[in-house]
């Protein structure tokens, strides 16, 4: 039961989903590698949850095919797919104890009671909820419920785990903590994780690869670093982190706010732009400066407070500097 997964690669081939005439997912192809942590990231309505529901088997595929280790699963019903899933809001069974919730998948598979008990104990230890085994879900905090949902989904050692905005209901501080635990559990079980979120920080901090989606199609796929450093278009650059967009010689460049230097205006020889400070906002670790550039655009600059102690005031004249590799040329769109 608990042997490491030999399987778990997933192939999405030209998949579309139509609701009436509306294409919620439009011709998506994607290779998901065994054991990777892949995040589907996009604003609401981008089709990320629809794609996940098709992988889970709760929605039919209108066009295309989905395969597990190259074998099509398009016609396999949800209950036969053996994919674990952590639902938005967890969907724990309210009338069952934590133990019964976690053991549910094994008990419907008619495994012997001793095996179920042993495996559930193992899962309780994995999510560190040993002393809560006999409680009902409503007696647990949000973070604990989230861990029960995770343990329940992993209990039958599925080759693929699907997570639908699993941290959406948690407050910000707890969310960061649970992100760490989730990453740790992913490392330990080695299951393929497919994670849906609209939270770009979550995606950046946890994923091996991120798929950025918009309007039912894939915008860009890559590691967090690739996507952050080399966005291919304005949507990706603006959705994953913040970005200034600079026009130069008819081309558009993305420029991250933290990659710009500000100097008190002295007609610096290397200055790319000059302008005046419109506002300065203090955030503790950094301060955000909005500059009205002389070419009429508005540039956002993040300055490390500790290393740049000189104070800027509204109305100050400043020069903006950056290195050539800081600006990334974008495709149109």
């Amino acid at each position: 039961m608990a042997e490491p997964n030999q399987t778990g690669s997933l192939q999405v081939r030209n998949v579309s989903k139509l609701f009436g005439t509306f294409k919620a997912v439009n011709d998506i192809s994607l290779d998901i590698r065994k054991g990777e942590f892949l995040t589907l990231l996009g604003p609401s309505g981008s089709g990320k949850t629809t794609l996940l529901m098709m992988i889970a088997g709760f929605l039919d595929i209108s066009e295309g095919d989905i395969a597990l280790d190259e074998a099509s699963i398009a016609n396999v019903p949800a209950e036969k797919r053996n994919f674990g899933m952590v639902f938005q809001g967890y969907a724990l069974f309210p009338h069952m104890t934590v133990r019964d919730n976690i053991g549910y998948a094994l008990s419907v598979r008619k495994r012997p009671a001793a095996e179920i008990t042993a495996r559930v104990d193992e899962m309780l230890e994995l999510v560190q909820l040993q002393e809560f085994a006999d409680r009902k879900p409503a007696q647990l905090s949000g973070g604990q419920q989230q861990r029960v949902a995770l343990a329940r989904a992993l209990c039958f050692a599925p080759p693929v785990l699907l997570l639908d905005e699993p941290l959406g209901a948690l407050d910000k501080k707890l969310r960061v903590e649970v992100q760490e635990q989730l990453k740790d559990i992913h490392r330990r079980v080695g299951t393929t994780f497919i994670y849906v979120t609209h939270d770009q920080e979550e995606a950046l901090s946890m994923s091996d690869r991120i798929v950025i989606m918009r309007d039912g199609a894939i915008e860009q796929v890559g590691t967090p670093k690739e996507l952050y450093e080399r966005p291919i278009n304005q949507f990706t650059a603006g959705f994953l982190g913040k970005s200034n967009f600079i026009q130069h010689n008819g081309k558009t460049f993305a420029l991250r706010p933290e990659k710009i230097d500000l100097r008190a205006s002295a007609s610096h020889p290397d200055a790319r732009l000059s302008g005046t400070v419109r506002s300065v906002t203090y955030f503790g670790s950094m301060q955000r400066v909005i500059v009205d550039a002389s070419d009429g655009t508005e540039i956002e600059v993040d300055i490390d407070v500790w290393r740049n102690s000189e104070t800027l005031r509204e109305g100050d004249a400043v020069d903006l500097l950056w290195t050539d590799d800081a600006a990334v040329e974008l495709q149109m769109g």
Binding site: A56, F58, A78, A91, L92, F93, V108, R152, A153
Partner: peptide
Amino acid sequence: DPKLEQASKNLGASNWTTMRR
């Protein structure tokens, strides 16, 4: 919550088991 039904199926339960349990 209809998600409970989805969760039960996702965990491998048939329609009848989902109904009963």
